[in-house]
Amino acid sequence: MRPFVLPLLLASLALAACQREERDTRPQSAFGSGEQPTPVTTLEPGGQRPSPTDNKAASFEANAFHLSEGKRLFGWFNCSGCHANGGGGMGPALMDEKWIYGSSMESIHATIRDGRPNGMPSFRDKIPDDQIWELAAFVRSLSGNAPSSAAPSRNDDMMAHPSENRMPDAATLGKSP
């Protein structure tokens, strides 16, 4: 019996590494999820949208896959056109700690889905609900509200200087031969 204990222990430790993050790429029901009533007013108590917490919010928040999907969609849908990679331009900055309409996932989701006064357009029907949740999770991660183990890293082209392997060659001073 004794000689089997160590290999078994090692095998179970090794097998634990097979655990992989779930990638939920399908909406929970065929009719979409997280459908909330259309707001009748832009005024919200405490800046927070009084809505029941959607279970999507929690599962997307710390999930590296959904955060990186949100980052991809942020670029694809040209959010940077107004929000400039989160630094803010025509639209407000997303990487600071100021939240005009609340910092919860539900609030950001509502902002993207229904739009906000003075510029933010509504993407209702234009972006599937799950993808709006992914965007909301990414927007929250911009200001450090996502665990660093899951948050997507900064783009190469946003770095203060190019990465080591893209630096000009010292011998040719960056000129091609």
């Binding site: 790429t25 979409g32 599937p128 609900d129 799950d130």
Partner: peptide, 13 residues
């Protein structure tokens, strides 16, 4: 996502 799981084409309602 059934035909090509993980592809960037989302399921649209």
């Amino acid at each position: 996502q059934g035909v090509k799981p993980g592809s960037h084409m989302p399921v649209v309602d």
